[in-house]
Design a protein around this nucleic acid. Structure first.
Length: 549
DNA sequence: GTGGATGAG
DNA sequence: CATTCTCATCCAC
């Protein structure tokens, strides 16, 4: 037990990745990983403020049905909570302006653009999305490359806060690594603000869990660095094991059953203590997480594996109402599939039946049914956001037949949720580098489409019949619902110092992200700072856009 | 492959 | 506590 109280146990395990060989990427010569976690401040509210700048000075929140899911910092400065029920908040704070955020369309777009900005600045490094507004970035290679610059010339000042700064040692190479990470984090956040007008918070640490946790120390619009030797100090500030990302309500409940109430209890636990409720691997992971040890790699997020829409409502009791709702959902989903550009092979319908829930004594009971969908039905979405009439009714009929598997229309039921989702996209073979450079092959690439129209103005069908209409509070300040489209995002030019010197930055900047990633991935890391001969594989492609000198 | 459980924001 | 509207992962079947 005494070894758990020394505060360098965690950092040691991080430094030498022994014991986690299968999970960890090859450890960079004794130095720690450097992970940045970027978290947008009250994301939905910020997006709405960008779309409507007049909202900036107002206490404002974003509403979905009867829930206020986030408020802006103007509201929070007045003591308004981050979230709550519409009822409670509007009663206590009549000045609070609410914007409807049930349609995630714009948030999705901003989220994609944030990912693009981050990816464009971090080159071939892994960027992993978490939800709409968070990104993990493994910047270890960049840090490594810049660490080799003479330390005396570049003392690499820290950007932002250092958690418990007293133990800062500028000559410690581990501290220097993290300091470099903080410099990059600051640049990334600045770029997100410049390009998109959004502020964010960041955490810099040796793994994902710690980066995320420490990033919460200074919000909004600021960043915090965690030194490995302050890991336990940070963890001691957490009120409960539930505060650890990865320990959700179910795991927390299981821990409580085992008599593990506090984080200290979990830190001191043995795998054998947890064996009743968890398998060995999970038990080990939970104990490690409680000690700030997290070997999980930052995974590169690709395109989504599924796209879905759900709508909750007061109640639906007939097949006809369901059909109307499904038609409306499908119309919106078709637009999203069109913009994605890939044709899914599976379609899924989700439903929630209050009567079934009560019968089974459950608080929530979501059911879903899925089926393969014949290729020819959806191919129209490759070129058009709307399907031909025939195909559209085929899709709606398929959805209804899936619904029929869940609800018995000859017995009473009360649906309170319907959703449609698609998945099983064919693997993307069109994005290979060969394909891109083959003459005339450009059109075969799976380019992301420009959105044609916004669905923000679309309202659910028969909404008045199916649910109590909620007064549009935001209409009060937005009498003319002017569609504010965010300016198209130009992929920013990289820092010249960060790409090989003989590559033309302008050409580089105009290359699609996947091509850049492929090129840099094939590029030895040292060549970003030192000139090295191109290897054979890269040469032929790289020569296409080398500076003509 | 299907559908539910869990966890994330 | 879940509320809302998602998306990913894991796992029994």
């Amino acid at each position: 037990m005494s070894d758990d109280e020394t505060d360098w146990g965690a950092s040691l395990s991080e430094l030498s990745a022994v014991g986690h060989a299968p999970l960890i990427p090859p450890p960079p010569s004794g130095l720690p990983r450097v992970i940045i976690h970027i978290d947008l401040d009250c994301f939905y509210a910020q997006v709405e403020m960008v779309r409507q700048p007049a909202l900036r000075s107002q206490p404002m929140g974003v509403r979905q049905k009867q829930m206020v899911i986030t408020t802006n910092y103007t509201a929070r400065a007045r003591g308004i909570p981050k979230s709550g029920s519409v009822q409670a908040l509007t009663q206590a704070y009549p000045e609070l302006i609410l914007v409807n955020g049930e349609d995630l369309y714009e948030y999705r777009r901003f989220s994609q653009r944030i990912f693009e900005v981050v990816s464009s600045m971090t080159f071939a490094h892994a960027v992993e999305r978490l939800g709409m507004d968070e990104n993990f970035i493994d910047v270890t290679p960049w840090v490594h490359a810049h660490l080799s610059a003479p330390a005396e010339i570049d003392p690499s000042p820290v950007q932002g806060h250092v958690f418990q700064a007293a133990s800062w040692d500028k000559s410690d190479p581990v501290h220097r690594c993290l300091a470099l990470g903080s410099v990059l984090a600051q640049r990334i956040r600045t770029r997100i603000r410049e390009e998109l007008g959004l502020t964010s918070a960041a955490g810099i640490a040796v793994n994902k869990t710690l980066a995320k946790l420490v990033g919460g120390c200074h919000k909004p619009d600021d960043q915090t660095l965690l030194l490995p030797d302050q890991t336990l100090a940070l963890l001691q500030t957490l009120p409960s094991p539930r505060s650890i990302p990865g320990i959700g309500s179910a795991t927390h409940a299981s821990l409580l059953e085992l008599g593990i109430d506090t984080l200290a209890d979990l830190q001191a636990a043995q795998v054998s203590n947890l064996a009743e409720m968890f398998d060995r691997e999970t038990a080990e992971r939970l104990i490690q997480l409680s000690q700030g040890i997290d070997p999980s790699p930052v995974k590169t997020s690709g395109r989504p594996q599924s796209i879905g829409l759900e709508d909750r409502f007061k109640v639906i009791t007939t097949r006809d109402e369901s059909k109307t709702k499904l038609k409306w959902l499908w119309g919106r989903l078709a637009q999203l599939i069109y913009e994605d550009g890939r044709i899914p092979r599976v379609i899924r319908v989700t439903a929630r039946d209050q009567i079934k829930e009560r019968a089974q004594g459950r608080r929530w009971l979501k059911e879903s049914r899925q089926t393969q969908i014949a290729g020819h039905i959806l191919t129209g979405l490759k070129t058009n956001p709307d399907l031909p009439q025939r195909e559209e009714s085929q899709v709606v009929d398929i959805c209804l037949s899936l619904l029929d598997k869940m609800v018995n229309h000859s017995a009473p039921y009360q649906l309170t949720l319907l959703g449609i989702g698609v998945s099983d996209f064919p693997p993307e073979t069109a994005n290979t580098i060969q394909n891109y450079f083959v003459a005339g092959a450009k059109e075969t690439r799976n380019e992301k489409r420009q959105p044609k129209r916004s669905h923000a103005a679309m309202t659910p069908p028969n909404e008045e019949a199916m649910c109590q209409p909620t007064p549009d509070i935001d209409e009060a300040i937005r009498p003319c619902s002017k569609k504010v489209k965010p300016a198209p995002l130009a992929i920013p030019v990289c820092d010249v110092s960060d790409i090989p010197h003989d590559w033309d930055p302008e050409v580089w900047a105009n290359l699609p992200m996947d091509i850049r990633t492929e090129l840099l991935a094939s590029q030895p890391i040292q060549s970003r700072t030192n000139v090295k001969p191109l290897n054979k594989k890269t040469k032929s492609i790289a020569s296409y856009f080398q500076k003509k000198s």
